[in-house]
Design a protein around this nucleic acid. Sequence first.
DNA 1: TATTGTTATACTCTATAACTATA
DNA 2: TATAGTTATAGAGTATAACAATA
Lengths: 154, 154
Amino acid sequence: MPERLLLDRLLLIADVLQRDMARAFAGTELSGARMAVLWVVHHSGPATQQALATELDVTPRNISALVDALETAGFVRRAPHPADRRAHLVELTGAGVELMTRTAREHAELSARLLDAVAGDDRAALERGLDAIAVRLAQLIAEADESADDAASR
Amino acid sequence: MPERLLLDRLLLIADVLQRDMARAFAGTELSGARMAVLWVVHHSGPATQQALATELDVTPRNISALVDALETAGFVRRAPHPADRRAHLVELTGAGVELMTRTAREHAELSARLLDAVAGDDRAALERGLDAIAVRLAQLIAEADESADDAASR
DNA sequence: TATTGTTATACTCTATAACTATA
DNA sequence: TATAGTTATAGAGTATAACAATA
């Protein structure tokens, strides 16, 4: 009988978090992809669609559609770019600021409740472990990218 | 300046894992949703499409499409159900068994490499912490469901 | 000539609803 | 009457390619 793997634990939590988010968004005009756009604008301030596409690693076309939906829903507006008439600056409306303020608070509350479930003695080790995993994961992916590049150029 | 939250760490890892999977599947006939079907059949054996829909919490219609794609790709077949002529039993082909055997091995290898990145003294605490988080998450979602049911029946 | 954003098109995942064959 | 699966239709997220306006 195989023991439970670390990766299984991580994927289980990832899946539950994602399903919970999807359920919370059901029936609203929001979604995970749209919320990702709002997070970037909330944290980094008004941004061009190119900047959003780069930051979120999706195509500019995809950003157009997401911003269309968010604009229709009233959470962002396209303001003119002060120096480049081709570009727009996507910025939060009042409703967008209100939404993101509330969402950030709920995010912190959920985080606190989850940390609260972990034994006090285990908390620091858990955070160190998660950070180490994130770093290693990034390394492994970078290595895989190099191998793929090598294969492509050979 | 807000400290980094536990939830941010979990969501970062979840996002990276998901992107890495999507990248690994690019250009193949596989995807996360199709692989989820294969995992269930691999672990639980031949299953009806109803059983798969229930297990994966998607609609039977969705399972039809996923099994169509997996059948075309040669990883599963629809065998007749021995006792119910309406139903099919979805089972792995030889290629499906080979794929899942290899995938399970790679899964275990990645898991070992990630655990290897965690300091030896932190490993047990990390696993306990993740399990505690999964349990608490399930509790919170169950509570939210009850509240929603109350609201619906009121 | 290069960049920003959009229109056109297509594919995957997902859902609901109506239908067929069988139980 | 209920269940297993499919056809029909729709919407979100994603991609590539071609194009317009501007740099």
